[in-house]
């Protein structure tokens, strides 16, 4: 019996790992720079100034955006690295761009910084992010064209994954499965599509059925319980 229980536990663990890894693999579609493109080190997928390594702004969201709640995304006041690197976690100034140090391009809103940019380690959305709500306007690529799009942070931004869907977005193992494709609003700006409740329900039923079959297969095959009434 213990052996069967371990079997079920292993399967559940495997399923959990699958759920955890697939989204992580998919995340590089948005934003990010070279190092640990967004998502690699726990970042959200709309990193501002998602820079590359030395002074080049790479692809992603290079347009100006704004954060609520003051993460450690921009406004670096230190020379090397962020000002929050050594014990000054809450001293992020709210200026756009990098205020000094290496690699800062000096162009107002463009994050072309190198060292200490917000996209390296510990940028907004990495460990210990203090902001609960983030809104940004960025670029959404679909059909080879780019459109302005609103990103609100959180799971809802998975809606934008449907711009270039991969096959596994159609499976319940990927978060994009639970969101509708983005919709175009006024002025040609895209908004997240919202939760696909039908898919959510469907996958719930599916997972329950799979779990039931697995439990049946691993817990009772060849076993009979005797009871007296």
């Amino acid at each position: 019996m213990k052996k069967n229980a371990w079997g079920i536990l292993s399967l559940m663990l495997f399923a959990a790992l699958l759920l955890a890894t697939l989204p992580a693999l998919a995340r590089p579609h948005f934003g990010g720079g070279s190092f640990g493109r967004s998502g690699s080190f726990g970042g959200g997928f709309h990193s501002f100034g998602g820079g590359s390594s030395f002074g080049h702004s790479s692809f992603g969201h290079s347009s100006g955006g704004f954060h609520f709640g003051g993460g450690s995304s921009f406004g670096h006041s230190g020379s090397f690295g962020r000002s929050g690197s050594f014990g000054s976690g809450s001293s992020q100034s709210s200026s756009f761009g990098h205020s000094g140090s290496f690699g800062s391009s000096g162009f107002g809103g463009r994050s072309t910084g190198a060292y200490g940019r917000s996209g390296s380690f510990g940028r907004s959305g990495s460990f210990g992010r203090s902001s609960g709500y983030t809104h940004s306007t960025s670029t959404y690529y679909i059909g080879g064209r780019s459109y302005p799009a609103h990103y609100y942070g959180g799971w809802g931004d998975y809606s934008y994954y449907w711009g270039t869907p991969a096959w596994y977005y159609y499976t319940p193992f990927h978060p994009a499965f639970y969101y509708y494709p983005p919709v175009m609003g006024q002025g040609g700006v895209y908004y997240p599509g919202g939760i696909n409740w039908f898919h959510l329900l469907l996958s719930g039923v599916l997972f329950m059925a799979v779990l039931a079959v697995l439990a049946k297969a691993f817990s009772s095959k060849g076993r009979v319980r005797y009871r007296n009434y």
Partner: peptide
């Protein structure tokens, strides 16, 4: 027979 869990042999007095 049970869908979930082991099948049961029930003896009813």
């Amino acid at each position: 027979p049970h869908w979930l869990g082991a099948d049961e042999v029930a003896t009813i007095t």
